[in-house]
């Protein structure tokens, strides 16, 4: 089993699913993205299901690896991954039936930063996402602090389930937050994610109130979600706060989702334009459709 990161020692360690050195779509400029492992929502349209759960070291993925990058260590029987051999083919993740990945690693913030050091001249900052990065708050805060000290301010991409009002250090260490609001309707949110959206709405209000919300997003999946209601509800709160926050409306795309959800259609331009009009009508200036 993965040791509890907080209990280990004074250095906060976290379970990192993967590190992507360059991204155009995770905040302003070019940013490195750090994916943390583990999520408390179970979105039906999840695009990274392999980041949801902790690896239980069942070993089923090991024979699936064509590059022999996976092995089971003698003794406690932990599955280990050899990055030098890995070709990134994805067969292990496809073989895992537990929404996990054998490539997640327990890391210290300094290790994450040293993995990024050669890309430093290319980056505006980092974005920490998941999974749900708010589930590892000590590690997240430490990573944000060390990254900022290294000249790379950090954005937090979150589902909003954490109680950020109770995490002032983390909020201070972050350059800003990008929050997903998946559904405004409580029942719809439960149906989509398995949990209530009350914490999400509370995070939306709190992050707005402290001026730390950089961006709010809603994924638009016709037939699955009432996007009009969600966009209307979010826009009203953001507009009332008077803060300049970008609202990004994201077309559902089937790439990477679980097999059962690959047939959900991608919304057309007219649908997206009418949703953007709702947000602009509420008074938001920075509305982006992707």
């Amino acid at each position: 089993m993965i040791p509890d990161p907080a209990a280990e020692d004074v250095v906060a360690r976290g379970v990192v699913a993967k590190i992507l050195p360059f991204s155009a779509v995770d905040g302003p400029g070019n940013r490195a993205v750090v994916f943390l492992q583990g999520c408390d929502f179970d979105c039906r349209y999840c695009h990274n299901p392999e980041t949801r759960a902790a690896c239980i070291h069942c070993g089923e993925c090991v024979p699936a690896c064509p590059a022999r990058a996976l092995s089971i260590a003698p003794g406690p029987g932990l599955v280990s991954w050899d990055p030098a051999r890995c070709t990134g083919c994805g067969a292990c993740v496809a073989a895992c039936r537990h929404d996990s990945s054998p490539k997640a690693r327990l890391m210290e913030p300094a290790e994450v930063l040293s993995a990024l050091s050669r890309y430093r001249p290319f980056l505006s900052g980092i974005t920490v996402t998941g999974g749900e990065c708010g589930l590892q708050p000590e590690f997240l805060e430490a990573l944000l602090r060390e990254s900022r000290a290294a000249g790379l301010p950090g954005l937090v991409d979150t589902n909003g389930s954490a109680d950020y009002a109770a995490l002032p250090g983390l909020v201070e260490a972050a350059e800003g937050f990008m929050l997903d609001v998946k559904a405004w309707d409580e029942a719809e949110h439960r149906a989509l994610t398995g949990v209530s959206n009350s914490a999400v709405i509370a995070s939306l209000r709190f992050l707005l109130s402290v001026g730390k919300l950089s961006e709010v997003r809603t994924v638009v999946a016709p037939g699955l979600l009432d996007a009009e209601e969600t966009v209307g509800g979010v826009s009203a709160i953001v507009a009332a706060s008077g803060r300049a926050v970008r609202y990004k409306l994201i077309r559902f795309r089937p790439q990477g989702v679980r097999a059962a959800w690959r047939d959900i259609p991608t919304p057309d331009d007219a649908t997206m334009a009418s949703l953007a009009a709702i947000a602009r009508g509420a008074g938001l200036r920075d509305v982006v459709v992707v």
Binding site: F22, S23, A24, V25, P28, G29, N30, Y119, P121, F122, L123, S124
Partner: peptide, 11 residues
């Protein structure tokens, strides 16, 4: 996100 390209060019 043209700043993405600019960051890469600068780097």
């Amino acid at each position: 996100n043209p700043r993405h390209l600019l960051d890469i060019a600068k780097g």
